[in-house]
Design a protein around this nucleic acid. Structure first.
Lengths: 341, 341
DNA sequence: GTGAAAGCGCTAACAC
DNA sequence: GTGTTAGCGCTTTCAC
């Protein structure tokens, strides 16, 4: 298994540095950490020895001794390669990184069991804080960690059975605005294509959709709701199927950007396309003239970071909930009139 | 600083579990780790005590003691919120995650100094391996870590001054194909919009561009090369400026997907657009009928993971270099004829 | 200014 | 099967 000969020396320890410098362990420690009360001569000797040996302090040992939590912040998301979460993670990392924290990420594939296992591992690693875009139905399993002082922040989806800091989009209002916008342009058969049914953002957006329709006295919408379009391909197929059905919708509300992209693929080359509004802005929405419910994705990461850092810094404040507003951006696709009445 | 009263109990240790279970520390350790040679009665007692206390083993301590490297794999990229790297990271995480490793990520913002600092921190954490999409001009600073047995894998950009496993796209060939494709459609004034000049992928793609033009005896291309279009907005502006210049190109080769998107924004609403081929495929390329140089992004992560795992598993093989091929996908934009001769 | 000893939480080595 | 002892690499006493 391991190389038979030529065994590697192993990382140099502080003890070796101290020995080479001819000082005690503690003095070496002081010098390496730039503490005061070290004569500059000693300092030089030690630093020189450390450089010679290529000394690199072992953080595991340091953090263990200090009993302190590590400078790692654990983040658990459904899928890191989803650009939405990647951007949120990027923004969060940027904020906490400037305070000396690192982000350690784990993807669950939207599997609650995987989530629990990954969270457990992060906790075993004594992460300084936990950031979750959770897929679990209940978060009571986090109560112990919470009590023991590990800050927990929920992003995008709220905690269930647990009080914790949370950053959410205004999903329901955003969806409602989108559908009202379509209604105001004369639509009454409005399709909804949504993400996995158990995800809270989907449920909220569905609620907003129903809100708008109910407020306008429109019923029969049940025939126009589709769920579980979790990837672009599925969204494309579902959209195509909906447009091919007996009495197709005259407008479609796609409940996230992947679904919007899937729907655009499905509507490609259609001579007369239904109206379309998508939740989430995306990079080519302008070029494609797609109306959307826009919001500030980076802000979710930044607000999450702020909550984490506040907890880490401080007292036992109340849990906070930040809501990020949404707004309609009209670009053409959402303003198309119904094709038939 | 710390809460004045009501001090938290601190995480329970194995010693406390052992005490509660009425066994020795080592027995508790064995039970918790599911080792053999523990009577099932003892096992039960210990596990019960651990559950009572909400015991969670401390990985820092375990890994320190075992002297083994942690089960963390460090990955350093320019920007995690860049979908390309997010997808690569996602694919890599998926592969190593199934073997019990976690990914710890850090973004450098394409700053070589930041990169070196972040790498140093990961090494201090004794990561099991290092995966780099590096922005540094030299990687000699990694030689020590390399010698000491930390596997290092380079993704997307090759190491300089260091021999290490590497996964690269066939940038030069891909770019050359793209430009040849444009030439075969009659273009002779072909613009190149590229990323930051110091990034190796940019340089390779530029080389491929020059290869194709030189092979066809086309010169004067220097007037059609633009660099440092690192984000969508910059790419848009640069493209717009190029199209507005005295003798604009009849075709454009955009050297990565962000640049392609920026260029599409710039070309929006143009009655007669120049031909366009972009490096990297993107989600809406079909809808927008954009011809691209496509490749398998997930594969880069997967191959990287394979290299990491092979190193971790094994002997002292030769360093390996994996090249991921590119292919032209014609969708219309790259087949437009020149507007004037 | 400097150093010796103890110990963070755990596991390896060796008893019994 | 179980327990004892030592020690991973570092920092924290507390002494000098």
């Amino acid at each position: 298994m391991s190389p038979p000969i030529d065994d590697e020396p192993g990382a140099p320890t502080l003890a070796e540095v101290a020995k080479l410098a001819g000082v005690s362990l503690k003095t070496a420690s002081r010098a390496v950490n730039g503490e005061r009360y070290v004569s500059s001569a000693t300092m030089d000797k030690v630093l020189h020895a450390a450089a010679m040996l290529g000394f690199r302090p072992n953080r595991l040992a340091r953090e263990l001794r200090q009993g302190s939590r590590s400078s790692l912040i654990g983040m658990v998301v459904g899928d890191l390669s989803n650009p939405f979460y990647a951007r949120v993670a990027g923004a969060l990392e940027k904020e906490v990184g400037s305070r000396g924290f690192h982000l350690i990420t784990a993807s669950t594939g939207e599997d609650p069991e995987a989530e629990q296992r990954l969270v457990e591992e992060l906790l075993e690693r004594r992460v300084a804080a936990l950031v979750l875009v959770s897929t679990s139905r209940s978060h009571r399993y986090l109560a112990a960690a919470d009590l023991r002082g590990t800050p927990i922040v929920f992003l995008d989806r709220p905690p269930v059975g647990l009080l914790a800091d949370t950053v959410l989009l205004d999903n329901r209002a955003g969806a409602r605005m989108a559908v009202e916008h379509l209604i105001s342009h004369g639509h009454r058969q409005i399709g909804l294509i949504g993400d996995l049914a158990h995800i809270s953002t989907h449920q909220e957006r569905l609620r907003g959709y129903v809100d708008a329709l109910t407020a306008s006295g429109i019923d029969g919408w049940e025939a126009y709701v589709r769920e579980d379009a979790h990837d672009i391909r599925t969204a494309k197929n579902i959209t195509a199927a909906m447009l091919a059905q007996g009495r197709p919708p005259t407008a479609i509300f796609t409940a996230n950007s992947r679904i919007t992209i899937g729907a655009l693929n499905a509507m490609n080359r259609l001579h007369r396309a239904p109206a379309l509004i998508g939740f989430d802005d995306f990079e080519l929405s302008e070029v494609l003239e797609v109306s959307v419910v826009a919001h500030d994705m980076e802000r979710m990461g930044a607000e999450g970071a702020a909550l984490v850092l506040a907890r880490l810094a401080g007292g036992a404040e109340e849990t906070r909930r930040v809501t990020i507003p949404c707004r309609i951006v009209a670009r053409g696709s959402g303003e198309r009139e119904p094709r038939w009445r």
